[in-house]
Write a protein that binds this DNA or RNA. Sequence first.
DNA 1: TTGAAAGCGTTACCAA
DNA 2: TTGGTAACGCTTTCAA
Lengths: 348, 348
Amino acid sequence: MLARVPKRPTLQDVADAVGLAPATVSYALRGERGSDETVARVRAAAARLGYEVNPIAAALASGRSRTVAVLCGSTRDLWQQSLVAALARELMNRGWHAIVADADGHPEREDALLAQLRAQRPAGLLVAPLDPFAEQWEAVASQLPLVAIGDRLSRAPSAGAVVFDNASGVAAVFDHLAELGHRRVAVVLPRRPSTPDRPAERLVAREAKRCRMSVDLVRTPPATADRGEMTAHLAAALAPGPAGTDSPDRPTAAFCLTDSFAFGVLRAARSLDLEVPRDLSVVGFEDVDFADLAGPGLTTVDWGRDAVVGAAVGQLLTALESGRGLEVRTIAPRLVVRGTTGPAPTRR
Amino acid sequence: MLARVPKRPTLQDVADAVGLAPATVSYALRGERGSDETVARVRAAAARLGYEVNPIAAALASGRSRTVAVLCGSTRDLWQQSLVAALARELMNRGWHAIVADADGHPEREDALLAQLRAQRPAGLLVAPLDPFAEQWEAVASQLPLVAIGDRLSRAPSAGAVVFDNASGVAAVFDHLAELGHRRVAVVLPRRPSTPDRPAERLVAREAKRCRMSVDLVRTPPATADRGEMTAHLAAALAPGPAGTDSPDRPTAAFCLTDSFAFGVLRAARSLDLEVPRDLSVVGFEDVDFADLAGPGLTTVDWGRDAVVGAAVGQLLTALESGRGLEVRTIAPRLVVRGTTGPAPTRR
DNA sequence: TTGAAAGCGTTACCAA
DNA sequence: TTGGTAACGCTTTCAA
């Protein structure tokens, strides 16, 4: 048995108080019609009674709502966590409500959550997709304004998107590492069985070739409640081979495509007694708020979270409020260098 | 002009399909009534049509909803950010929806946001209050099940709460610092003009006296978009006095009552060229996920976020679903020592 | 400028 | 077990 929401004054109560019809009151409160005098009287009465429209009834009657659903892949990822927080804040500031859901790293959960969210009849959708290739997106986007963040939804041309200029970002990172003298770099990226064709991998391959560097691809499962798992996985990938070899038998730099991976690498390095950045240079691809504090010298690519949030919320609400179409906007990267170093001389 | 939410099959459509009355269908779908045969037929038809109840209409008709409003003081604070994310996740997992709002550090905004949230007619409220002494809470709590997190709402006896055993936590921190030989500690705590009487301050005074330590109270405004402000404020408080004095003219340890303050202190220390923990031991009062990575040796008090979330969501939903009353639950602290050191010998 | 009345898609009461 | 029917509180057409 669910508790009843308590009774509050209704439109009818206000109408009775001023001796007008509910319709008139409704229009007056919304400033859509009515003489100045009526509007003033109605507003005064509403204020006196402590009346506030019931958004549920309003939504039912009008078929519209001021709620936006936010669906993200995993708030265990700090970048996404802060993204969701910032999206909710921005929506609120603009007079909208956010209802949030978190697939917690499970692509298959994305569908179920999406269904749940849509059942709440939001006016629009903001999605940081786990699986941007899924079929479902087109069905959703054709019915509801949808803006994807981070990945374009390849099957849903009607959806808007805010994407990162990964090409520039990856190039900047490889340039930086090459300049420091690294020859072998571990690239830590998500392992997503259902999305075979990530452009990130192609970009990495291309840039590595351009910079004549060899790459260890380290496919890593997303962060879960148990962080030890990821640390162990990454430690295995970064560990030096058997002793006695004369060349560095391990990558001297790690390029992490997600901040949670970067933190994982820092932990793995610690467990291997590798000092960062002396023994291992670590570069993150998302600049979270305290990247400057995470170990000494975590170099990152900053995508400007505020720009991302502004672009996503901005275009969604514009579409909602004035019917403008959705588009794909691209965010430019900025490399924030914090004490990355070249490969350790003793290992050369 | 807001976009219309697209038309979907309704209860009536299902009723037509099976040749029954809407009421019967409604009961059947909820498993409240109906012969096994009817229920099966109805369910099949609903599935075939892709019918899903409209929660808006259901909420209007029944006066109940499966939505919980979450209001927090500031998601710029990482502990709160992760708390909100975890609350939303837990609610979702239990079949409820979260609508979230963030006062962004402004106590006066708390009222307005609360009004907005309540207008959405949530079934219950989860609050990490900025101003636990505000009058408004009682009015809210008497109408809606409310669980406060972090502070008991002193004026709202009907609200539940999940509070931290600050007495034990503060005592543990002072014991730890005293044992290391610190004699003067900076205590970094929020500056909240409207809440004159924080027990934390009394606790700090008491424990400092017990351990014969002197305390510098550093009242600090909450984190904002501009982090430089906080760093400067804290640097001023931690800076050594004029050179040539023989005793340490600054605190040798900082005890931060909020994680964002701890990060601020780490940044301030860096700007002052103080090495942590050699020149300054830093203790945080909230254990965020990557506290282990934030500079070398950030000792923290861990309150077990999962325990907090479980206690808060658990008791709220129990109250909502089975009418049980709300209560005050207390979370015990655990000191996580990560390389804190005593005062630097050269300063003794 | 105002108002009557018909929805919106459910749930819940009371008869059948 | 089933089905009318009246809410729920608002918005919106259409008349006045």
